[in-house]
């Protein structure tokens, strides 16, 4: 079986689990859907209202801001769909000793992490919200984007997701060395990205902006790629994928070091909370 077929088979079974979970009860289903949509809309409402009130923010026209909000919601949507069950919040798994479950499965660790958090039904509401906002913005912008633009849009979107994931894994890997203290580290890191992802960062000082694109790369989650895609800045559309690649590389090295450390120390504690449930 090829790697792709294997991954697809695992995604399929996870999708089945997710569908059965999502549809176990009508009330649960509705609360889940409505709750997710409201949460996602609430996450972008403040910036949207500012853009609406002032007909844009700085260099950004109102519809461009909405595009960025949609892009940010899409990033969150993809992460919700692909990396639930605390894969995104990896420090929880490490800190609670739950990594052992993955180690006794006959698959490479990366494959377990890539597939075990796949929740296309319960996680898709953020994605659909993001897709809706983005589609609406694209229509309002009125520009007939060529196929090449859509390809770059996809590549940047993927890179932004990878950036957020790598950032989470980089901080989450601290739990290998300080399992209790760092148990919630990746949640904080992801929370930080989610909170700031929808703000246009133009006008910040060079120092702060550099920080927002390096140490705390929140700028790459939506702001930077959106301004490139919309032509607000010079179109260096390979910047976000390159930055994502670099951060993923660093996160990969740190995580590998962490795994080597884990093989020596293991986990001194085990908490079942949040494991497969």
């Amino acid at each position: 079986m090829s790697v792709l077929t294997t991954v697809a088979a695992r995604w399929r079974v996870q999708a089945h689990l997710d569908f059965m979970w999502m549809t176990k009860d009508l009330r649960f289903f509705l609360i889940n859907v409505v709750g997710d949509v409201i949460l996602n809309l609430a996450g972008v409402t403040a910036v949207f209202l500012l853009a609406e009130r002032f007909d844009g923010i700085g260099l950004w026209a109102r519809d461009q801001v909405i595009f960025m909000l949609g892009y940010a919601a899409l990033v969150r949507g993809f992460l919700d769909v692909g990396f639930s069950y605390n894969v995104l919040h990896i420090s929880r798994r490490i800190g609670r000793g739950q990594l052992d479950h993955l180690l006794v499965q006959p698959q490479p660790l990366w494959m377990g992490l890539l597939t075990e958090g796949f929740m296309p039904f319960s996680g898709c509401w953020s994605l659909l919200t993001g897709a809706g906002i983005t589609a609406w913005a694209v229509v309002q912008l009125g520009a007939g984007f060529p196929v090449q633009w859509w390809l770059l849009f996809g590549a940047n979107l993927l890179a932004s997701c990878a950036m957020a994931l790598a950032f989470s894994f980089l901080w989450g890997a601290l739990a290998f060395w300080a399992p209790v203290a760092a148990e919630e580290m990746s949640s904080r890191a992801v929370g930080f990205l989610y909170q700031l992802k929808a703000f246009p960062l133009d006008g910040l000082s060079a120092v702060v902006l550099t920080g927002m694109l390096t140490v705390l790369p929140v700028g790459f989650v939506a702001w930077y790629p959106s301004r490139q895609l919309l032509g607000i800045a010079a179109p260096h559309l390979w910047h976000t994928p390159l930055a994502a690649l670099l951060l993923a590389l660093v996160a990969g090295i740190v995580f590998k070091k962490g795994m080597e450390h884990y093989a020596q120390t293991g986990s001194q504690r085990y908490i079942a909370w949040g494991h497969r449930g």
């Binding site: 695992r10 079974v13 089945h16 689990l17 059965m20 176990k24 479950h101 085990y270 494991h275």
Partner: peptide
Amino acid sequence: RTELWWDQPVAASFEWKRVV
């Protein structure tokens, strides 16, 4: 510890195991 999927029927964990 358990390998069962907590909020799923036992059968679902078995099917998951078959695939993985």
